[in-house]
Write a protein that binds this DNA or RNA. Structure first.
Lengths: 353, 353
DNA sequence: CCTTTTTGTTAAAACGTTTGCACAAATCAT
DNA sequence: ATGATTTGTGCAAACGTTTTAACAAAAAGG
């Protein structure tokens, strides 16, 4: 059907091996033949058959990405899409394709991955999430298959990881509020079993201590990464006899819930309560008021994951001894918007101009 | 390295062909050998090599999905993610993998696709969008490569297409408002060069005429699929001497802009203006007030696209004569929420209980 | 000028499957 | 029983590459 390396060879009056070498820029090929063969390839519309190539080279030039199943939530959807775009962009740039896979149960997921891995369809894998005790992570780790985890997992310390420095990020967010003059700051956290929640809380704590402020356990609220959790947290804080003047919130969606609740109760943001949150999703600049948020560079996370994985694949082919365990940190940045643009008059000192 | 069909054959004391036939459930294989071979495969941990299989069968069991590049906008991101999930779910169920590709320029996109197609990495392709004169569509069509377009394109009528019946959907939305008692209804459209805008406008028009209401050109506003367009449209309508009591809006994001504008000017929704819009993104139920919106079943669109493509691939392998041109319509449904839950008192007749 | 090295090319094996053809054994008609 | 069919299995070619080893020709070294 389609034109093969042999067809080109015949037409050019050389052997198939020569054509193959032209393709791979073999040093010992004469300029003359190279040119000639290339011309003929062009002319005949030759395209190398990827399968044949993979078969012999035992490398597929493609990465597997394991899709998490639920992802019903808006934030997750945009998060994953952004991530995938980053992954694909970098992969393609390096000549890799990206194969998507998913399963509707954990078992199905493992089956799918093992088919990809054992069947030799992918050279490495990227996991977009990590549950506490993920059988897929387990499987990949057991097989010493090149893989990178986006977001930290404590499960297997011998895996390559791409992540945000959440402690640092939370500290940055908190410092910003302190700098604005806030002294009474609360924290709205996510599920305590997620590393991201724990880390962000830790960063919050550190920034407070570093500024000599009291870290009050009763100003910490835990919840989900959902609007409703924000709403509840807001009620909690507003019913306190002594209220914080600012909140650090673990996620933008949660902040939206807070914003809404405050609005309903007639409070103003940032005058009554200032807010800083995380993830800087596209919507954050559209809320009322726009949210100050830590941009964690989702696209960049994906991009870095791809890069690290490809690196690891190529290293593995070379030196088999040094298994590169790495932890990549993608830089974040604080994006200032209206929700934190207010300085409360500190009780002791007059407001500065 | 890994265990091949030959290893299994040797261990089982049969020929490789027999093992292969066991794998493919060949009818002429005895139950006894089948059992024995299967046991050994299990025991040795055999997994078929996909590349080798593809090479000889000339089929890769994978679909290509071409990612649009920009997709910066929130809605697009969630839209595409949903779509992709649908595509992958159905593909995996049918034993297909999904290969993602993208390019940062049109030329790169075509290159990437042609590599996938000519290199024999994919059996079919799904296009998630369609620009006016898309070179990728062109390429696929020229090569008679199995492909499906999500969303209509008039460019090549010989392509398989998966779409919403936007005319019908818009008519449904409009009828709902009419049924609620509205007689003065405006329409906020998208870019006139997009088929989706045109179709929804057509549906709107038909529903009006069918109800004997006047179709007023001066109550149509065109814009982008962005919040800002909604805001502008709102200003326009609110400054009219004679104002509509309800609006049909081409997209949820646009509705958000309208909602915001109305709120700023002190109008109430749905009491002053009722709103019905399209796409029912996750956020629609979270806005103030929640939006009545046409759910177009994005996941389902992806799901259907996969299905149609796989069908077409398999048909192509069988009967080469009948090129199945198809147009698949995915059902939509009106999701009722607060933004349309108000009946204006009609000027002539008293409100009914 | 003869040996050694370098340069350019090729033949053939290998990668792990599938499948058409052949063929023996078993089963079926008559 | 004997020919016709069916059933179960194996041989070998094919899929389109890459790559090792071999080798002739050309260039270099003395």
């Amino acid at each position: 059907m389609s034109v093969t390396i042999k067809d080109v060879a015949k037409r050019a009056g050389v052997s198939p091996s020569t054509v193959s070498r032209v393709l791979s820029n073999h040093p010992r090929i004469s300029h003359a033949t190279s040119e000639k063969v290339r011309a003929i390839m062009q002319d005949m519309g030759y395209h190398p058959n990827i399968m044949a190539k993979s078969l012999v080279s035992k490398t597929t030039q493609s990465l597997g990405v394991i899709l998490p199943k639920p992802a019903e939530e808006l934030f997750l959807n945009t998060f994953f899409m952004e991530l995938i775009r980053g992954i694909v962009a970098q992969a393609n740039r390096s000549g890799y394709d990206v194969v998507l896979s998913s399963g509707s149960s954990e078992q199905e997921e493992v089956d799918a991955v093992s088919r990809l891995v054992y069947g030799g369809r992918i050279d490495g894998a990227i996991l977009l999430y990590s549950r506490k005790n993920d059988p897929v992570v387990d499987f990949l780790s057991r097989n010493q298959f090149p893989a990178v985890l986006v977001g930290r997992s404590e499960q297997h310390s011998n895996m390559i990881t791409v992540d945000t420095d959440n402690i640092q990020a939370a500290a940055d967010a908190t410092r910003h509020l302190i700098q604005m003059g806030h002294r009474r700051i609360g924290f709205v956290s996510g599920p305590p079993e997620l590393v991201v929640s724990v880390d962000r809380m830790e960063g919050f704590k550190r920034a407070l201590q570093e500024a000599g402020l009291e870290y009050r356990k009763d100003w910490i609220v835990e919840g989900e990464f959902l609007q409703e959790s924000g709403y509840r947290a807001m009620s909690f804080f507003m019913n306190l006899p002594e209220r914080p003047t600012a909140l650090v919130v673990v996620d933008d969606m949660v902040s939206f819930g807070i914003l809404r609740g405050l609005y309903e109760l007639g409070y103003r943001v940032p005058e009554d309560v200032a807010i800083v949150s995380f993830n800087n999703i596209a919507l954050s600049e559209l809320s009322t008021p726009p949210l100050t948020s830590i941009d964690i560079g989702i696209y960049h996370l994906g991009y870095t994951a791809s890069q690290a994985l490809i690196q690891s694949i190529q290293d593995k082919n070379k030196v088999d001894e040094t298994i590169h365990y790495q932890r990549h940190i993608v830089p974040h940045r604080l994006v200032l918007r209206e929700s934190s643009m207010f300085s409360p008059s500190a009780p002791m000192s007059p407001p500065t101009l």
